[in-house]
Structures are given as C-alpha cells and as structure tokens.
Design a protein around this nucleic acid. Structure first.
Lengths: 190, 190
DNA sequence: TCCAGATTAGCACTTGGTATTAATACTAAG
DNA sequence: CTTAGTATTAATACCAAGTGCTAATCTGGA
C-alpha cells in the first residue's frame, strides 16, 4: 500500500482542485492504484467525474465573463447622451460593489459612474479629468439603481477645459454629486 | 429549409459563443434540423465538440483565476499601513485600465486606489467617503507603477469625520492628489 | 427532367465514465 | 489457523456524446 486510503483521498481532493482535468486513468497512475480504486475514492468523497468537473469550472467562467464584461463597462450604462450638453447613465449596484462589512457601496464605483459619464458627454478624442470635487451624500446599497445625470457648463475655461456637473440619485434621492473639470483637445473645446 | 445553411452556420458560431454547453442534440432542436446536419456544420466551421469546448472554456477559467483575484483587489496593493497615521499602496497600471483611444489611464482607477487607501488607513467598522476634491495632475499610462501615499490629518472635525490627504506618484513624479473627508463611527474617531 | 448540393439515416467505433457483482489481498482478532 | 472485515482489483453491461464513414433522400434551379 503506497499511501493509506484516507490520506490518498485527501490528496485526491487537493489534486483535483489544482487540476480538474485529470481522468480517472491519470489519477490511477498518479497514485499507483487501479482505476476502480480511484472511482471508489471519488464516490466516497463525492467528487464528480471529469466531465461534470469541467462543466462546473466552465460555468463559473461563463458567469465570470458576464460579470467582468459588466465590471469593465458597468460604470454607467449610458442611456442618453446629448453631446456637450447632458447625459444620463444607470448603474445597478450589486454585491460585488459593496463593502462586506457594512453593505455600503464603495465610493469609487459611484465616482467611476460619474467620471465615465463626464467623459462620455464630451466625447472628445482626448477628454481627461483634471480636477473634481465630490460629495457622497447618502450611502448606496446593493440592489439600488443609481441614475447619474451629467450637465456640461456652458462657460468654457481659458485653458481648454470644461466643467461637468454630475448628480446621482437613487429613486430621486440624491446620493452623490460631483463637479468635474475636464481637459479636452479637439472639437468645440479648443 | 428554415434558415439557409450559411446563415445558420453563422448563427451557430454566435450561439455557441454565448452558450458553449449545448449538445448537438440541443443545437439540432434549436435550428429544427437533424443532428447530422449540426455535425456537418460544426465540421465546416471547425467548431469542436461539446467536451472540447468545455475543456477550453474551463482552462481559460483556470488561467484566469489568478488574474481575476488580483483584478478585484488591485486598486491598491497596500504595502504599508500605520493606522490613523499613514499608508502606502502600489497599483500597476495595465492595458485594461487605460482608454483604448489614447492609452491614458481612466481616472476612476486612480481615484479607486486613493479612495481605497483612505478607507484602509482608518480601518474603522464604518469609514465612508463624504467629500473629496481631486487633482489629476499628469496622465498615467499602462506599465506605470503608481505609488499612493495617504496621510491622516490630526485635527478631527466636529462631526465624526477625518481628512485624509493622498498623493500618488509615478517614479516620484506627482500624477494625482486628493483630499478625502471621511466619516467614521468607531474607535478614535468618535 | 436531371443534377448538385443540402440534408438525413444508419452503423461501427471511441472516451470517460456509472453501476453492479465477484474475486482477491491484507490485515486483526479469536 | 481460521475468520471477519476492509481495501483493492477485475469483469461486465450500460450510457452520453461524440467521430468517421457510407448511403439514401430531398429539393431547387438550368
């Protein structure tokens, strides 16, 4: 007996956690036991077969892709834009956006939504945030739908920059406001 | 003929991109054709069978686990903290953090790093950003390593809030500075 | 009408299993 | 030594989801 049964089964669990792609045959070779033994081991440890393992790993990937696709672009699903005038975006706050400790949305997500919107409403080749001042007025929680409204101030500053005001609300309740001084190079700005 | 062959094959590609878990039988039902037709389609389009698809999706997941772990927490890998005094974090800017158009880092990542650091240096059960003013001083690009330094102002405001100053630099060059007024409930703050 | 391409059917074979039953090996206790 | 009990191995039938191949059928257009 190379390795006692119990130890082997524990090793099996960690082995498959690291590499779920192993067939029973691979595993059998790895432990120098028969395929049947491996199957008994899996049975006792409630470890599913290769295909089921891959299925579950793959499904996590699919869940992940949706999330990460959102995660990249979610900071404002922009639903309306009038260039150089105003724009609106919505952001559905999910569990991943909040502090585990108190369930309140991390500030940078609200900032990201507002900032992205400020960039989008100008839509220049190069629109960068230079300065901004923010006010986090009320905590936002998972499940809240944050609606951001950006308005571009008509006065253009001397140095190629524009000011965008953003107000974010949850059910008409202001939760965040920010003033973004944006630098721009092309179009109406220069 | 429900859908002409070519169109069906194109649809097949996008269908399996969205849901790689479909068996040939599922697909056959979906297009109202025979399983054999589906197999010919896959053959012509070089689409591998279900198991191979899952294998490749799963392997991407295994590669991705490491990356996504980083990706979630990346907004400041905090390398030093002295509670209620100062803290330092680093943030390696990657391609995903920059605008495709001009290669400049999106502002909210810099904000996220600074804001996270401001939260971390206080480390209260409830530390929230109330107000902040920011200055994006210099564009940051992929490959840059942003070092953020947070310092807690000693004067505590009347209303349970504290001010944290954050300065971010790339190779000693200031790129971002921010002032964060933080609300806190427990410990030294109340 | 006839033909080519598209579609469908049928069969043998492959992988990586499940499920079950039986045989063997290796102890530990009486 | 025998016997019970566990661990291991073997053998068999079966399944899902395919591949590969051949053959038949449909179907639209010159």
């Amino acid at each position: 007996m190379r390795v006692p049964k119990q130890e082997r089964q524990q090793l099996l669990v960690t082995l498959l956690k690291e590499d779920p792609f192993l067939t029973d045959e691979d595993i059998a070779r790895h432990f120098s036991v028969s395929i049947q033994t491996v199957r008994l081991d899996r049975l006792e440890c409630h470890i599913p077969e290769l295909r089921e393992r891959l299925k579950s790993v793959a499904s996590q990937q699919m869940l992940g892709t949706v999330k990460s696709m959102q995660a990249e672009e979610i900071f404002g699903e922009i639903i309306d834009v009038e260039l150089d005038d105003k724009a609106i975006s919505i952001f559905d706050v999910q569990d991943v956006h909040v502090f585990k400790r108190n369930g309140i949305a991390r500030g940078h997500h609200l900032f990201a939504q507002a900032n992205s919107l400020a960039v989008a409403v100008l839509d220049d080749d190069l629109a960068l945030t230079v300065r901004s001042s923010l006010h986090f007025q009320k905590p936002v929680r998972a499940g809240d739908r944050v609606v951001s409204r950006a308005t571009v101030r008509k006065e253009t500053l001397k140095n190629k920059s524009t000011v965008v005001d953003v107000l974010s609300t949850v059910e008409s309740d202001p939760v965040f406001s920010g003033e973004f001084q944006m630098y721009r190079t092309t179009k109406k700005g220069g």
